[in-house]
Design a binder for these strands. Structure first.
Lengths: 373, 373
DNA sequence: CTGTTAGCGCTTTCAG
DNA sequence: CTGAAAGCGCTAACAG
């Protein structure tokens, strides 16, 4: 039905092998022959059969990109950046297979299997990881298999997998002597400095004079949630240790979405009407927090300061402009893309941590004199 | 190296054919045999070789989704919706290949070829089309080839391709007699009612009393841009025909991004300092417009009303909340996904138009008494 | 530089 | 219900 290599070969009066060589361009072919082949390709409107060549060559030009939800700009930006490194004009000409896991560990595993089935050239896992030990183990196994099958694995925006404790060896130093680096073939990682960013953000609030600070955190079992909370607490410990006692009470958990921010803010207000600042799990949550505060008749930042995290494009244009922590998502995604394609060498220790930056804007200000509403 | 069907067959003591049948599940196999095979699959950690089965079966489980830029929530939401209809748990278990065209016609064609090479099961083209006749023709050809190769083609958020005029036949009625419907195998289309939405939006502004209305439009050669402008003009013609003379002067074109909104608003202000309202090409552009107006010391909506288009998630949370036209992007994307998978029958005439809805919010209000600033 | 020859791993008639 | 056999279309040694 469809036109094949053989058809082109016949038409150009050469062998199939020659056509293949012209098309892949990785082998010397006489100029005249080449143009004869190319003409035949044109005339026949020949299009290579991807599956056939993938089978024969044992490689595919698919790269998997796992995201929570591609509709969320946080993931959209990273996915876009990953792709920017592998379009048809860039070296590679690879195609990105975007998989929405919806944050479900099960779907994450399923998609990895599907990608292994496609013999994907690489897989990039973006966003926070779920910290369930069972899932972590299953994930590590899947990733190991993928790597064994020749798929390059890159983590972007999540920490490296915890060291599998193997045969029960405990602690460092027990690695087989002579093995120079046990992480040599660990998945490459582009991690975010969530802890540091959160620390600086809370520090900013404290230095403005806030002492009643609520936190609308993300889902409890996520690495990102944990790291941001740790940064928050570490800042409290440094600058206002007396507040640590209250931190549990002033922290609520929810999803990384607007309505969690809305509900979370209301809950915090219930627990502590004297709140002067609210930290949100991310910018989207912050928007929900702002909406709830406004609905309660509170002004931002005069009555309550609000801060987000991520610095998504809309944050700078919010009114008031949102104080947040910038993560260079595009830069990180692009780097992950390059690592996935082997176009950039592995960072030391296989982990690159990208800096985060405090963006102090108009949504945070000193608390009103008196501190409470 | 990798474990193959044959390995599984050997281990289960059956033929490769049987294993294949068990795995694809589309053929009767004895219960006992089946479980023996399944056990072998488990034990060997067998994962089907996608390219091989795609080659043999002449079908792949890849679906292409072409977007301008997946980092833009407008496209992210549609892409997400398309996928929501074909995840592993839904019928299909298809994988979405997301292709960022960056709005370039050339890249669009290139990606279509790449997807044809993959023998994609379907392709969904989202967002506005470029109206260059040459490109339209090239695109139509590509799509016809894809369709001929068995790939289902769906347009989402763009109008159906203009009827190819074939051998120069002009006008309707010249279709070959007996051909019941020339659009029978035209690409399925989920179109947006951009014209109607724009008409209602401009009508809203006019009914508030605005007479100095600027328009920061999208790129000139895009269908979406043209349709929204047409709706705008049609509303003027209906309610304030005297303003039509000025519409050219009060329209500027730019990209669909924030900075175009910013620059466009400044330019409009230069041309018409007495502006009382600005319509933006979309919500993102509107954000830029708002920023520019604020930088000029103008209040929204007291001094100038602003409206967007699309109703992206952040729009309702902007301050003031943005008046805009809601497009049910998720619903549209989901429908496109179902059409792509053949899980929904073709709409009449192969074109489904989704309604758009005026969302009148706080960013628009009557102009100040006197009309000018 | 070019042709020949084997498969890559799976699906699918066609016979049992 | 199961097996045998014949490819699907391309690539990659290996010879010329």
């Amino acid at each position: 039905m469809a036109v094949t290599l053989a058809d082109v070969a016949a038409r150009a009066g050469v062998s199939a092998a020659t056509v293949s060589r012209v098309l892949s361009g990785n082998y010397p072919v006489a100029g005249a022959t080449r143009s004869r082949v190319l003409r035949a390709v044109e005339e026949l409107e020949y299009v290579v059969n991807g599956p056939a060549s993938a089978l024969a060559a044992a490689t595919s030009d698919l790269v998997g990109v796992l995201v929570n939800d591609i509709a969320d700009p946080f993931f959209g930006i990273m996915a876009s950046a990953v792709q920017s490194e592998m379009g048809p004009e860039k070296a590679g000409g690879k195609l990105a297979v975007v998989c929405n896991t919806g944050g479900s560990p099960q779907r994450e595993l399923t998609y990895l299997t599907l990608l292994q089935r496609q013999r994907a050239a690489a897989v990039v896992l973006t966003g926070s990881a779920v910290e369930d030990p069972e899932h972590t183990a299953a994930l590590a196994t899947r990733l190991r298999r993928l790597a064994a099958a020749g798929t390059r694995v890159v983590l972007c925006g999540r920490p490296p997998l915890p060291e599998a404790d193997g045969e029960g060896a405990d602690g460092p130093g027990t690695a087989a002597p002579g093995a120079p680096d046990s992480t040599a073939d660990a998945p490459l990682t582009v991690a975010f400095d969530n802890r540091g960013g959160a620390r600086r953000l809370t520090g900013h609030l404290l230095s403005l004079g806030h002492r009643r600070v609520g936190y609308v955190a993300g889902p409890a079992e996520r690495t990102t949630t944990r790291h941001r909370l740790e940064g928050h607490r570490s800042a409290l410990a440094d600058h206002a240790p007396e507040l640590l006692a209250d931190v549990e009470r002033l922290t609520v958990h929810g999803a990384y979405d607007r309505s969690s921010g809305y509900d979370g803010a209301l809950e915090l207000l219930r627990r502590e009407p004297g709140l002067t600042a609210v930290l949100a799990a991310n910018d989207t949550v912050a928007l929900g927090v702002c909406a709830a505060l406004r609905d309660r008749g509170l002004r931002i930042p005069e009555d309550v300061s609000v801060a987000g995290f991520d610095d998504l494009p809309f944050s700078a244009d919010a009114a008031p402009a949102l104080t947040t922590v910038r993560i260079p998502l595009h830069e990180a995604g692009a780097r992950a893309g390059r690592l996935a394609l082997g176009r950039e060498s592995a960072p030391p220790g296989c982990v690159a941590t990208v800096r985060t930056e405090l963006m102090a804007r108009a949504s945070t200000a000193p608390p009103r004199a008196g501190g409470a509403n």
